[in-house]
Amino acid sequence: MNLNATLFAQLVVFFVLAWVTMKFVWPPIMKALDERAQKIADGLAAADKAKTDLVLAEKKATDELRKARESAADLRGGAEKQASQLLEEARVEAGRIVAAAREAAEAEAAVASQRAREALREQVAQLAVAGAEKILRKEINAQAHADLLVQLKSEL
């Protein structure tokens, strides 16, 4: 444990190393540490904000869903009403068409039966004349008795 000039050399090295650390080591590391602390603080604040945002968004989504459900119900109600209205209209229209068809058919049938009756009446008259001719043999003048025949015809 002798003392010598190593002491001064060590003294100088001591200050040089401390200076180097102060100049080149300490500032970047402290800067990184401070920045990271800031980042973490920012991150925590952002997480808090995100949490409140999430609550708001959930509330908004619930509202929207409720609104959509309500409008869908409205829509369905309207559609059902319209559908029943259409159905009612269609039923009325169908009734009208059926009635018209029946009327037309009846009218046609009446015309046809009238025509058939006319034809029949013609034939009966001719048959009656022909029969009477056979019975009376030429004694009846067709012309002289035309009025009688017409009268007979209308009675049929």
């Binding site: 002798n2 003392l3 010598n4 000039a5 190593t6 050399a9 060590q10």
Partner: peptide, 14 residues
């Protein structure tokens, strides 16, 4: 040899 001698430097320590 002497307890204090500032003309000497310990090379290994340095």
């Amino acid at each position: 040899s002497s307890i204090i001698d500032f003309s000497v430097i310990n090379l290994d320590t340095f």
